[in-house]
Computed example of a mutant assay.
Amino acid sequence: MVAKVLTMQSVERHKALPTRRAEIPDAALPGFYLVVQPSGAKSWAVRYRLGGQTRKLTIGSYPLFDLLAARAAAREALQMVALGRDPILARKATIEAAQAAERDTVRAVAALYV
């Protein structure tokens, strides 16, 4: 598929294919895609290569993430890759840190002993 610059109107117009999911590339940001599932669900993803391996980071669903927010998140992920960091590992580390902080609150510790 030839990449074209995605717009909000083009995102709205893309329909689901009945037998397979479709990835529509964005010409404005190479590696950034709109993913349309056969169910009609739409989401955003970015593909990148790090350490010789191709990776895919799912940014989030549409319309929860609009085009501008998803493009900004993809740009941030690609900047991390350019610095040699894996955005998937960074996301996992952030989630684990938040879970650890939640576990270590006074409320959580008190709930364990009550």
Rank of each mutant, 00 (worst) to 15 (best):
M1R: 09
T7A: 04
M8A: 15
Q9M: 12
Q9L: 13
S10N: 08
S10M: 01
V11C: 02
R13K: 14
R13I: 03
R13G: 01
H14K: 14
H14G: 00
K15S: 06
A16C: 10
A16D: 00
R20A: 14
R21D: 08
R21T: 08
A22G: 04
E23H: 08
I24C: 01
P25K: 05
D26W: 05
D26N: 02
D26I: 00
A27E: 14
A28V: 07
A28L: 09
P30C: 01
P30I: 06
G31I: 03
F32Y: 05
F32K: 04
Y33D: 07
L34A: 01
V35K: 00
V35C: 08
V35P: 02
Q37L: 10
P38W: 02
P38C: 03
P38L: 01
S39F: 04
G40A: 07
G40R: 08
G40N: 10
G40Q: 05
A41D: 10
K42F: 03
K42P: 00
S43W: 01
W44S: 10
W44F: 05
W44P: 00
A45T: 12
A45H: 07
V46A: 00
V46M: 02
R47T: 00
R47E: 07
R47M: 03
R47H: 04
Y48H: 08
R49Q: 15
R49D: 06
R49V: 13
L50Y: 06
G51Y: 06
Q53R: 15
T54Y: 06
T54E: 15
R55W: 03
R55V: 00
R55N: 14
K56E: 14
K56L: 15
L57Q: 09
L57T: 00
T58L: 05
T58E: 08
I59C: 08
I59H: 04
G60K: 09
S61H: 03
S61I: 09
Y62R: 06
Y62K: 00
Y62C: 04
Y62F: 13
P63L: 11
P63N: 10
L64W: 09
L64N: 09
D66A: 11
A69Y: 04
R71V: 03
A72Y: 05
A72K: 15
A72T: 12
A73W: 00
A74W: 02
R75A: 15
R75C: 11
E76F: 08
E76A: 14
A77N: 01
L78M: 09
L78Y: 04
L78K: 05
L78E: 03
M80A: 13
M80I: 08
L83K: 13
P87E: 04
A93I: 01
A93R: 13
T94E: 15
I95Y: 03
E96I: 11
A98N: 10
Q99S: 11
E102V: 10
E102N: 13
E102Q: 15
E102Y: 06
R103C: 01
D104N: 15
D104G: 13
T105S: 11
T105A: 01
A108D: 05
A110P: 09
L112M: 11
L112E: 11
Y113D: 11
V114R: 14
V114C: 14
V114F: 05
